[in-house]
Nucleic acid binder design. Structure first.
Lengths: 244, 244
DNA sequence: GGCAGGTCTCAGGATTTCCTCAAAAAAGAA
DNA sequence: TTCTTTTTTGAGGAAATCCTGAGACCTGCC
């Protein structure tokens, strides 16, 4: 999360430019993921949660604007658009769709780096308020950085999707998460087909982290709407004594 | 704080440009403070705490960069720099000093407006996180964000329709709601068939949130018309003592 | 009082939603 | 490839919710 060592997703189909960007970014201490495909960009985004996205508007498959919208629908990750489309209309459209910045090609790499610093600096300031590398809910500890989950000090093995679901829950604890939102955050598209999968994952997660899975204290069902992860330690207290 | 009606401080010494900016901003619903002097800009800033600053770098007295630094030292208010100095070095310098954006002159006013929207949108989102939506009527608390309803601190379990009905009531508390309106809001079409259902839901809600359901204090029947949800704390006071 | 219109209570069956268990399909690892 | 892990799908059942009916009640009017 820190500005230094931040992960940046580069979405650029021009190999030469992509390579140049990648080299500069790496040289400045960032970790870089790069792709020229819009579909892959969305997949990568939901998988790795980069700290910032550099986005070309002209891609072979999906429009960059569409990517913009899809990402902004589920996340507030900063996005900087790079484009040869330099009409004012294009800029306004991208910015209104959720882009944080718009840099016209050709650009100087130093300027792009500076704008990246601005975006990350702002993020960092914002995160300082709610910075959490580790979340505790009663005897349950989720270490966001290392992908580890502890229950009563013991490691809990979770599959990638289970972990991702738990991460979403604990980072939004106390708030209502509709099934639609969860589908969107887990798989990008809110396809109704996966609704059942979601139910199964919730059940599996309950099996692993709830003391009495049939009587959930942490992942609460809100009938007809979705789920809410309890944010009250009180509700989790009884986790210590599994069975009366 | 709201995006609409936000206060913007314009620091620009070229009278013609300043005037044009001011007119556009006012036309788009912003409140505008304008000055061509750096010193006055700082004074105005500390006095009125604008929501955003538009800043020219070339001013007669202080350098715009100096203003940037001085403002950033005490505040995280978004700043957008406008400048004819378009070398990459100038941009990087201003951005690293705390500016949120850098627009080269000459610029299109639509682009500047879009970038203002981006900055204000971001601010607003940040503020949203802090402000939890929550309605209190005496001992009854409805947390819109988490879909929770508390009575005297205890959770009340409501079915989806009951909750939706309560939500409608509390967001229109004090106002008369005709049965037609309620039918419309609950089920879209104001079909008369469901009138009885509505009555039943009102009754169920009373059972759950009224201390003496037969003597309603919160959901008041307006005979022949509909219902009104009390907005007087007084009316809800007695909730503390369920039975005399 | 008796009646009419509207409102309220209670309860049960129909329906929808959600959960469980388990197996098939897909994706990764060796 | 083969084996293992993970994901997705399926069927059945449990639970919660929704809706409706029958009648009580209440209020104002004749």
């Amino acid at each position: 999360m820190a500005s230094f060592g931040a992960t940046i997703l580069v979405v650029e189909d021009e190999p030469e430019l992509a390579g140049a960007l990648e080299r500069s970014l790496v040289a400045h201490g960032y970790r870089v993921l790069s792709t020229g495909s819009g579909e892959e960009a969305l997949t990568l985004f939901t998988r790795v949660h980069p700290d910032l996205v550099l986005l070309d508007l002209l891609l072979p498959d999906i429009s960059g604007l569409e990517i913009c919208r899809r990402i902004r629908a589920v996340s507030s990750t900063p996005m900087i658009v790079l484009s040869v489309k330099n009409s004012e209309h294009d800029k306004v459209e991208a910015l209104d769709l959720g882009a944080d910045d718009y840099v016209a090609k050709p650009f100087g790499i130093a300027e792009v780096l500076a704008r990246i610093r601005v975006a990350l600096r702002r993020m960092e300031r914002q995160n300082d308020q709610a910075a959490e590398e580790q979340v505790r809910i009663g005897p349950l500890v989720v270490e966001l950085g290392s992908h580890r989950v502890l229950l009563n000090g013991r490691d809990i093995a979770l599959t990638p999707t289970e972990y991702e679901l738990l991460r979403i829950f604990v980072t939004h604890r106390g708030k209502l998460l509709t099934r639609q939102m969860l589908l969107q955050m887990l798989w990008g598209a809110a396809s109704h087909d996966r609704m059942h999968s979601l139910h199964v994952y919730v059940a599996q997660l309950r099996q692993k982290i709830e003391p009495r899975p049939t009587e959930p204290r942490l992942i609460l069902t809100i009938p007809g709407v979705g789920y809410r992860f309890s944010d009250e330690v009180e509700a989790a207290r009884e986790l210590d004594s599994p069975e009366p």
